[in-house]
Design a protein around this nucleic acid. Structure first.
Lengths: 342, 342
DNA sequence: ATACGCTGTATTAACGATAATACTATGGGC
DNA sequence: GCCCATAGTATTATCGTTAATACAGCGTAT
């Protein structure tokens, strides 16, 4: 903070009114006559006065800020979510306190402490584990408004998210219906205990009567394009007769696509690829990427409404509600062929 | 904020000590004997006490938060910068207050007010215009620590950034030295008055004795991949005999590349492409993208050090210093051929 | 025994705002 | 002329913390 910024006291000294009169005038109180207000407003403008929100927060017992904890920002769809949330909250007079957990539980806990210490009015979070939520449940029990951006209907915590299970089901079913019988799943989240996409993927196999070879589950080293590339390298090296690959996000899918084009595998003729999230880079790839759309505007809008609702409650929180947005499958060239034999 | 969180007063009531004693004990003051401290620490832990940073900020007259204003988050390199800054500041005990200006001067001004009102200790900003900086200069005159993340040596404001002029020079010179004589520039920033890259591009032409046809300057509709795609469509439609395209960022370059591959233009044989920023998607594109590297770790580290230094000054700020990081050219396949006639 | 210093704790005053309450003119009704 | 309502402004308490100062009790030097 710069050394001396104008305070109410300074305006009071300059105009000869009391601090309280100045405060009332600036807040347009009807008790202050027009003439007085004008004098005070002029003085305030001249001194470049801006109310100290720290002091306001203390006395009002609300900060008008919301914490947002993301796993990491390398996934473009997460940054899109982050920006959408920031923009919408800003319109409603809220500031966003960003933090990243780097997919680490201890860092996540630390970030939550930071946000609590700063007395953010509520918290939006992509938890790094969708199963270990005790620390978040504890927060909620103490009536802290928390909204998860991934969904576990049984978590006992409010959530607004894409229905990843349903999305993965659609993607896998699409490939199966196109005649693919050996479909690989490239998904790092499952090994961290976040199995929604894997569940949907396997469910599709079950429901459509196709057995799934567990050797076709690949765990990439991260969520980068490079990770997808090397995951495909690994997969091809195993010679398991794969004809389609389903990836848990588009970055991985673009890595897989890159591997294919550089190694003479035609997409979609030899290998079909479906990604997840619908990032712009997928649409403009050599072979436009089929994907499951992440409805950023809808999820962010609902999540913000939910957390603001919880804040309104001002005390005892209502029972937790989980809202899952049904995602659409976008079929593009990378998976738009029927597969006939290998 | 949840209704009742523990305060010093509550711990005092529980333990029978005064508020001040509790405060001192929690801050490890040597005046408090071990035995007392233990009692107080236990009570604090039991009550889940977390110091109220709002109150602390008020009395300490520093918030340990830094504002970060970005133009938008659709450019992956900006999100990388944002995350790097957040992570490093967090390690030093600072919180990051993000805001986006959406490349609008009025929104930028509004975000600055928000950050000032919240009494962030300093501000890091990608200003939407590199020329209209009066509002930022005014801030600095009032001793508010501001560091720009784009560079204007004459701005009179501290800055740490990539040397975009030098980067564009290298990119253009590389193309010219490869025998290209008709090089298009796809750069939306120039029309907004941010001409660093254009200047470097034109400078390379001048210094290497190549005239530049102003009709080869293309203004894309935004910074998206789609914008690059349609900019290239526009350019090709004009039939100006272009053999190389230099883009002001990799998203645009990937759009250009996409246009080329979908319209039978071979890259780099028919068209060479060079981008800017070095995002991962460029490296893994059909034709790996030549680009100018954005040294995220270095820029963010220096910028953070600078703003923290300015905060240390605690009063009169020293003379502004501008640090420009020299970017490297990364030649990949999209521009690694000598061009021989058209 | 007096003075002195130390240890452990409490009291009081900030920080910059808001909220509740209290005063002081002024004017109107009777 | 007196009472009362009202308009305009001031005073005081409060938010949760830290900082500065005060004070009580006790051991020790003189």
């Amino acid at each position: 903070m710069p050394k001396s910024v104008a305070r109410l006291k300074d305006i009071a000294a300059l105009t000869g009114f009391s601090v309280n009169t100045v405060s009332l005038a600036l807040r347009e109180s009807p008790r202050i006559p027009e003439e007085t207000r004008t004098v005070i407003l002029n003085a305030a403008a001249q001194m470049n006065y801006l109310p100290n929100q720290v002091a306001q927060s203390l006395v009002r017992r609300e900060t008008r800020s919301i914490g947002l904890i993301l796993t990491d920002l390398t996934n473009p769809v997460l940054t899109a979510v982050a920006q959408a949330i920031e923009v919408q909250l800003s319109k409603r007079g809220y500031t966003t306190l960003f933090a990243t957990s780097n997919n680490t539980l201890s860092l996540e806990a630390q970030m939550i402490e930071t946000i609590r210490a700063r007395r953010a009015d509520g918290l939006l979070i992509f938890p790094c584990s969708h199963r270990q939520l005790d620390h978040l449940r504890a927060l909620r029990r103490r009536n802290y408004p928390v909204v998860l951006l991934v969904g576990d209907p049984d978590a006992g915590i409010d959530a607004v998210c894409m229905d990843e299970r349903a999305g993965a089901f659609k993607g896998a079913a699409h490939l199966i219906n196109n005649g693919h019988a050996r479909i690989a799943l490239v998904d790092g989240a499952a090994t961290r205990g976040n199995t929604e996409k894997q569940d949907g993927f396997l469910n599709a196999h079950r429901q459509l009567g196709l057995a799934h070879d567990p050797r076709l589950m690949i765990t990439p080293a991260g969520n980068s394009v490079a990770a997808g590339y090397w995951a495909m390298d690994d997969l091809v090296g195993r010679r398991l007769g794969v004809s389609a690959v389903f990836c848990s996000n588009d970055s991985l899918a673009l890595g897989v696509l890159s591997y294919c084009t550089r190694n003479g595998l035609r997409v979609p003729e030899d290998i079909a690829i479906v990604g997840f999230d619908n990032i712009e880079f997928g649409e403009y790839a050599v072979t436009p990427l089929s994907t499951i759309n992440y409805d950023v505007p809808r999820v962010t809008k609902l999540a913000i409404e939910r957390v603001l609702d919880l804040i309104q409650c001002n005390g005892e929180l209502p029972e937790a509600r989980v809202t899952q947005v049904e995602p659409d499958l976008l079929v593009r060239e990378s998976s738009n062929r029927r597969f006939r034999g290998g």
